[in-house]
Amino acid sequence: MTRVHDMGGRFGDGPVVPEPEDEVFHEAWHARALAVTLAAGALGQWNLDMSRHARECLAPKDYSRFSYYEKWMAGLADLLVARGVVTRAELAGEDPAPSPLADRKLAAGQVAAALAKGGPADRDAGPAPAFAPGDRLVTRLPARNAFVPGGHTRLPSYAAGQVGTILRCHGNHVLPDANAHGLGEQPEPLYSVVFDAADLWGAPERAGDEVTLDLWQSYLRPA
């Protein structure tokens, strides 16, 4: 089993509410939450997969009641303590001690370059692709992290144990299932895999509709 964030295909969520294109942040604190998260990430004490997993590890009742940026705040607070960047006492309001990481602080003048640089996930290292476009494959069942019980994975439950067809190979990408848990990057071939909506949902909205996912080689075996 995966976690509360794995909601693809779920029933009961009500309508999607469109919004105008010029509304970037609904509240000033949303913008601040985004910026604090990015600036804290720049300290280099965790990677993107760890920060995703920190949000996924919120208790289901918290995950469900928190708005998007509240999840970010909660995930960040938990990561800061887990990585020893701040203490629980400091989070609770005790006078903070100076941090040995202060020399890594992202300066205003470094922001543009840091955001433009990004963090590419492709790697030269890793195995050769075992599959080619057109190959029929079956995905892991159940959707789970094979290294750590309850760990991070990018195989959604709705696509677990399903037969799909390789559309394209993206080359080797960092494996989130390992990288989220400090087990190294373990890059693997990443593929776009297309599934028939009728297979995923039983009764699709229309025959012939499809869903594609990007899936790592270790999630897949020949059908």
């Binding site: 604090v36 990015l38 001690a97 100076p98 202060a102 992202l106 205003a108 955001l115």
Partner: peptide, 20 residues
């Protein structure tokens, strides 16, 4: 969170303004 991280010398409020 912003206040705590600023006081610990880990984030610069001016960098946050730049990100936003």
């Amino acid at each position: 969170l912003e206040t705590l991280l600023t006081r610990k010398g880990l984030i610069d409020p001016a960098a946050l303004d730049e990100i936003i």
